[in-house]
Amino acid sequence: MTVGTKRTRAGNPTRNNFWIDIVLLITVLLALAPNFTGLAIHEWLSIAFWAAIVLHLLLHWAWTVNAFKRIVSRLPWATRLNLILNVLLFIDMTVVIFSGLMISREALPLLGLTIEGGRSWEFLHRLTADWSVFLTGLHVALHWRWIVNALKRFVWQPVSGLFRPTAGAPAAVALKSEVKQ
C-alpha cells in the first residue's frame, strides 16, 4: 500500500531514470562539442551536467552502496566491472568539468572569477574529455539491454499505440451512449 502510494507520487522510477539518462546522454554529446555549441554554452552546460550527474547518482544510490558493500565479498563479475567503470567515469567527469573550470573563459569570468589555469589544466581537460567519450560509450554499452527494453516500453509502445486502432474503443463509445439514454 505504502509502496503503491510512493509510486504514484513519484511516478514510475524506471521511466524517470530512462528520461533523465536520455537527457544526460544528449547533454554529454553537446558538452563534448564546443565547436557546435560555442564556448559559453559548452561551459554552462558542463556545469549543469555536473548537477545532473549528482542527480543520477542519487537515483542509483541503493545500487552504488550495495555494490561498494559487496565489492570485498562475492560480487558477479559483470557488477564488479560495472562498478569499476562507474567509478572511473565519475573520476573522469569530475576532472573534465573541474579542469574546464580552471581554464574557463566565459562562465567564471562572468561570475567575476578569473583563474589562470595554464597549459597543464588544458592538457588534462583535453585528455579527460577524450576519455569521457570512451567511458560513456562503455557505460551505455553495459546498460544496452536495459536501454533497449526501456526504449520499447516508454517510447516504442506508446508511439505504436497511437497508430493502432483500439479494439475496445467502439464498445466503450456504445456503452457511453447507452448510459446517456
Partner: peptide, 11 residues
Amino acid sequence: EAGGLGGLTEV
C-alpha cells in the same frame, strides 16, 4: 568560441 553547424560533425 562562437560555435556553429560546422561543429555538428564533432557531435
